[in-house]
């Protein structure tokens, strides 16, 4: 019996996660207020519990909750389901905002902000200055393999990795949904990786 209860619990958790992923996508794509309200009602009381512990003061705690959820509303397009669950993404936003709030509140003079430390709310672009170490030797190979990609994937990869555009910019330029850009990028990278390991 206990096993059944446990399973139900995990299943329920998975359902909530899937629902929250769908909500974030609709907020990103259509600025859907109902989807955001669902996210808001689920996360606000949870964020408040965290914020009260961290800030030790109700007014500051409320500021942290509001600031976090405002970022969720404004930057839902930066959420990437392939990288983690909505709760992880929202926790990391709250952690970042807490860091900057405490720095201001304590009048600390460090010139280090949360965006430097944790790129949660940065537009993800390929960093040309930073090829992965393992792959430096194979840049030339990658060039050849790139030619072997299907046209649609090549187009997206070229815009992101060669022209340095953000995924959102590529979506706008090609007139396709952001999710499609993300999945094409993922598929193309996966394919390149497979081709590379085949060569080894």
């Amino acid at each position: 019996m206990l096993v059944g209860i446990e399973l139900n619990k995990y299943q329920a958790q998975g359902d909530v996660t899937n629902e929250m992923v769908a909500c974030l996508h609709t907020v990103a794509a259509k600025r859907c207020q109902a989807s955001f309200a669902r996210l808001f009602h689920y996360f606000a009381p949870r964020l408040r519990a965290y914020a009260l512990k961290q800030m030790g003061n109700d007014a500051l705690a409320m500021e942290l909750v509001q600031e976090t959820l405002t970022n969720v509303w404004q930057k839902a397009h930066l959420f990437d389901a392939s990288k983690g669950a909505p709760s992880t993404w929202i926790f990391t936003i709250a952690r970042n905002i807490r860091f900057d709030m405490l720095r201001k509140q304590q009048h600390r003079k460090e010139d280090i902000c949360a965006d430097d430390l944790w790129p949660v709310l940065c537009e993800q672009t390929a960093d040309l200055a930073q090829p992965e170490l393992d792959e430096q030797v194979t840049l030339e190979q990658v060039g050849q393999l790139f030619e072997a990609l299907p046209d649609k994937q090549k187009q997206v990869i070229e815009a992101i990795y060669i022209q340095g555009k953000s995924q959102q910019e590529v979506a706008d330029a090609l007139g396709i949904p952001l999710g499609t850009v993300k999945s094409r990028t993922r598929l193309a990278l996966q394919r390149l990786k497979e081709m590379l390991s085949d060569e080894d």
Binding site: R46, R48, A49, Y50, S87, F91
Partner: peptide, 12 residues
């Protein structure tokens, strides 16, 4: 951390 931190609720 997210699982740990965002379980408890403090309703508004």
């Amino acid at each position: 951390l997210a699982e740990q931190v965002l379980t408890e609720q403090s309703p508004l």
